[in-house]
């Protein structure tokens, strides 16, 4: 084990694969992603196994995650959002369980990589833009013209609107990546102090790490929630424009 706090983010190839000139190696990141999909699927499908009218604890949690995201979509997008509920649910659960599984010792947090978060954010950005254009045609571009503004101001405001729109995927991806990276780095930095400080002094960084662990669980949930809510808000913008 290296004491470098960034070592935990190292991508290690497990099975080298090359497909059509693209490096598609199976890495520790891919293991975490596959594990996330497996855990979410087991959690939901086996949790609903009994299909009980009065749910047990496990089934309650599965139903709770469903209604949590369903309420989020309904509140932020409205009835038109029902169609997009599965994709937003998948996004939320994928990021949430990716974050949670990454908190297990010796595991890997794939959401701490900007390549992953930016791909997800770009997928959301492009998808939402295409939905907007498909629903409104060229009228969609009036989204960049704020209402009730004097015409003289438009040459200034329209570029600002466009820049703010284009920066959405950047902020969406950097927020998740930075939160996960910073939290895990902090935990590692404090953890590295525990043993060198000895039996007496080691308690202080250990206590900090205990607190940070709880905090990281909150951040893991919160970032998945923020990602899903912002996706809903962007979706709402392209469905309803202003």
């Amino acid at each position: 084990m290296s004491n470098n706090p960034l070592h935990q983010f190292q991508i290690n190839t497990i099975v080298p694969v090359e497909f059509a000139g693209i490096d598609a190696s199976f890495t520790n990141s891919a293991v975490a992603m596959v594990a996330t999909v497996a855990v979410v699927s087991i959690f939901l499908i086996m949790g609903m196994g009994s299909r009980a009218l009065v749910p047990g604890r496990w089934q309650s949690m599965a139903e709770l995650s469903y209604s949590f995201v369903a309420d989020m979509v309904r509140d932020n997008v409205g009835n038109e959002g029902r169609k997009y509920f599965p994709i937003i649910f998948s996004l939320f659960m994928f990021i949430l369980f990716g974050n949670f599984l990454g908190l297990l010792p010796y595991s890997f947090t794939f959401t701490s990589h900007v390549a992953v978060t930016f791909t997800l954010a770009m997928a959301v950005f492009i998808g939402v833009t295409l939905i907007g254009i498909a629903r409104h045609g060229l009228h969609f571009f009036t989204f960049f013209v704020p209402g009730g503004v004097p015409a003289v101001m438009l040459p200034l405001l329209v570029p600002i609107e466009i820049i703010s729109y284009l920066s959405r995927p950047v902020s969406l991806s950097i927020r998740l990546f930075a939160n996960m990276t910073a939290g895990h780095t902090m935990m590692k930095v404090f953890a590295a102090f525990i043993v060198p400080l000895g039996f007496l002094g080691g308690w202080a960084p250990f206590a900090v790490d205990v607190a940070l662990t709880g905090f990281e669980f909150l951040v893991a949930f919160l970032q998945a929630y923020v990602f899903a809510v912002l996706t809903c808000i962007y979706l709402n913008d392209s469905i309803h424009l202003h």
Partner: peptide, 25 residues
């Protein structure tokens, strides 16, 4: 490391989406 991450992200997320949309939800 970007290419393998993105490839596996696409594979796993599509799998996730289809499992969610067709079975779990």
């Amino acid at each position: 490391t970007f290419a393998p991450q993105i490839v596996w992200l696409v594979i796993t997320f599509l799998a996730m989406y289809f499992i969610m949309a067709k079975v779990a939800l």
